[in-house]
Design a binder for these strands. Sequence first.
DNA 1: CGGGATTTTGATTCCAATCAAGTCCGGTGG
DNA 2: CCACCGGACTTGATTGGAATCAAAATCCCG
Lengths: 224, 224
Amino acid sequence: MVPHLSAAPLAQHATQARAFLEQDAGTQPTMGSVQHFAQDREIFAQGDDADYFFKLVSGVVRTCKFLADGRRQIDAFYVAGDVFGFEPGDEHRLSAEAVTDCTVVAYRKAKTDPFADTDRHLSRDLLEFAMRGMTQAQNHSLLLGRRSAMEKVAGFLLDWVQKSTNHRQISLAMTRQDIADYLGLTIETVSRTLSQLERDHVIALPSARQIKLHNLDQLEELAA
Amino acid sequence: MVPHLSAAPLAQHATQARAFLEQDAGTQPTMGSVQHFAQDREIFAQGDDADYFFKLVSGVVRTCKFLADGRRQIDAFYVAGDVFGFEPGDEHRLSAEAVTDCTVVAYRKAKTDPFADTDRHLSRDLLEFAMRGMTQAQNHSLLLGRRSAMEKVAGFLLDWVQKSTNHRQISLAMTRQDIADYLGLTIETVSRTLSQLERDHVIALPSARQIKLHNLDQLEELAA
DNA sequence: CGGGATTTTGATTCCAATCAAGTCCGGTGG
DNA sequence: CCACCGGACTTGATTGGAATCAAAATCCCG
């Protein structure tokens, strides 16, 4: 039996986040600072230093990514009680904006950083797994949401060549059906798109599972 | 697999996890058990108890979700060195299958009470938070990958009504453009789909931002 | 070789995007 | 109180890109 799959993951973590922050407030010397943002104001931008993360007190916030040509993919909406802007790495990978006027509490990330305590190797590394998974899934959403078949396939090839030892050739372990189900396309479209890339001399297909990349620059352009 | 006993499955036993983290793939099989899977074999299924998580030693693995009608969305591919099956909750939300013959090391999640150690509350909560973010992003990918406009919109309404105090009416804070960018559709398609739902008496639209849900059962059917 | 699975290619359909007007508010000022 | 303005939303006509339907070609693997 297939469990019910929530179609739109609208910030399902309010309870856990609240527990975390209440506890934090009691144990840390520095409290978060309350801030207000008017509707459509940016709370933080893609690439900003991720020194703070936020708890939403009231209002609604969206986090989103932008492609170079302006296409936007909203990653999530947040409501009162939700925490957002909590990300791996030093800078924000998403931007956050006020959908309505809203009030947030900003917490300095360093103050709650479990990494400082060397006894917490466990949490640090597991946390990194989880955050890597989160980032990966967010990137996948961006890939699926607003990209053409060509952009998806080109992006897939670029992802895989990075995992490959050889920077010019990919050995695919998976079938066309697997690729299609990963990219949200049909097997025929994947095949056609690869054929098109071959016709354009961007790649060569010595066999179905072997792909030579002739023109990485062009491939990157096609991946948008 | 052994039934899961802990109410808080996210925390890992410190000793086990540290050993796991420092261990190189394929060496020191003291903590985890090495297992082999032939091509296309299932490593775990959606809904299985998530007592174990895995590190891939060799081969390629895919994790995926299925909709009721059999449509499949592959969430990720994993290669040697990657960790998968590490999820919040006490059951796997994805299934994992061997794309090629592969070797994994299985690690059992601890059943010890994570609340016993108060010093680790913070890390535990941060971890849980990160994992919820991961889950959320994965659900979003499923939404974007293989769903029609009607399924996306119906799913969006069902998710949003859960956040609402009134479970028969929704007040939307966001514009149609926001909804469109969240669902990977255009503003026109969102509008048309909502109008269609109103024509079918599934919802009513007293104003653009107010939506009455007349028939939740039908909405759930449409969300597939 | 032979046969089934996988992949490619071709023809057609269909859903959602695009292009293009309208309509409906929600605010503002007379 | 009402007329007007502008942004948000809806609706209509058409296009276009990917899905679907349908064969071929190719690749494996016994």
